[in-house]
């Protein structure tokens, strides 16, 4: 009996080792670099310089704007799609879902290159609309990450709750607003978390679509390629804190709204 429980515990060793080696240790390294200068002394200079520099603050806001617009676009497209997929009377539901998820199987540089060609056809010189193109590119790229959690959440939704609502006098719109929407908040939250961070940092999309504006990811990249580990780490740390705060806020929101915490990734 004892041997079995020990064996079970042993199963988590690979994951724990991975976690320590590739998550916790690097985080500590980032933390160390963020609060030291080139000579290795403790300093808050990196922190101050980020918030006193209009360029970096501008980048932060540009990233936030890009991230939020992308997330909203994803949500607006993904929700109706997921709703139809989950609640519609389709016989081959899994096949349809697959159609929406298969783009993820294709290398994303290939997808963005294809998108670039399409956009050039429509817009001519695509460098003219950098923000719009970046939003389109990222929405295209991250849409499945929004659809999937929403789909699972809506699929789990108990039909008898919708019947109960209409039984109590709610018409179809009211049923949606008062029952379906509040109960799909966990799905929305988990979709938002999965889209917002990558769309604030994934500068490859911007590079490929000729958007030369820096976002948080490119900022970190540029510091690192100039061997400035300290400022780069500080920005990474700030980004981490921002994401943490957003997650915390949305988690609390969904806790208020619903008791199902499991859906949050």
């Amino acid at each position: 009996m004892k041997a079995i429980t020990l064996n079970r515990k042993h199963l988590c060793i690979p994951y724990a080792a991975f976690l320590i080696l590739f998550v916790i240790l690097p985080l500590l390294v980032v933390l160390y670099y963020a609060f030291t200068n080139a000579t290795g002394e403790f300093t808050l200079e990196n922190f101050i310089s980020f918030f006193s520099n209009t360029n970096t603050i501008g980048t932060l806001f540009y990233s936030l704007a890009l991230g939020i617009v992308t997330t909203v676009c994803c949500l607006l497209i993904a929700y109706p799609t997921a709703y139809l997929l989950a609640r519609g009377k389709f016989k081959k539901r899994s096949v349809l879902l697959m159609l929406f998820v298969t783009p993820m199987w294709i290398n994303f540089t290939l997808r963005i290159t294809a998108l670039k060609e399409i956009l050039s056809l429509i817009e001519g010189n695509i460098a003219q609309y950098p923000f719009l193109n970046s939003v389109i590119g990222m929405t295209y790229d991250f849409l499945p990450f929004m659809i999937l959690p929403l789909y699972t959440c809506l699929l789990k939704l108990d039909t008898s709750l919708l019947e109960a609502a209409s039984d109590l006098g709610a018409d179809k719109a009211t049923v949606f607003l008062k029952v379906t929407l509040p109960l799909s908040v966990p799905g929305i939250v988990s979709g938002v978390t999965m889209v917002l961070l990558p769309s604030m940092t994934n500068y490859v999309v911007l590079d490929m679509l000729y958007n030369s504006t820096y976002i948080m990811g490119s900022l970190i990249g540029s510091y690192f390629s100039a061997y400035d580990w300290h400022n780069g780490s500080m920005i990474a740390l700030i980004l981490l804190v921002i994401i943490f705060l957003i997650t915390l806020a949305t988690n609390r929101f969904s806790d208020d709204e619903s008791s199902s915490r499991g859906a949050i990734l």
Partner: peptide, 28 residues
């Protein structure tokens, strides 16, 4: 449709709204 009938149902698995408290469930 059900919302137009003066008939109400008590469901097998209760079907109470998990996002609402007792008061809001009854007041729905």
């Amino acid at each position: 449709p059900p919302n137009k009938r003066p008939i109400n149902t008590v469901f097998q698995r209760y079907a109470l709204f998990p996002h609402l408290n007792v008061y809001d469930n009854i007041a729905f």
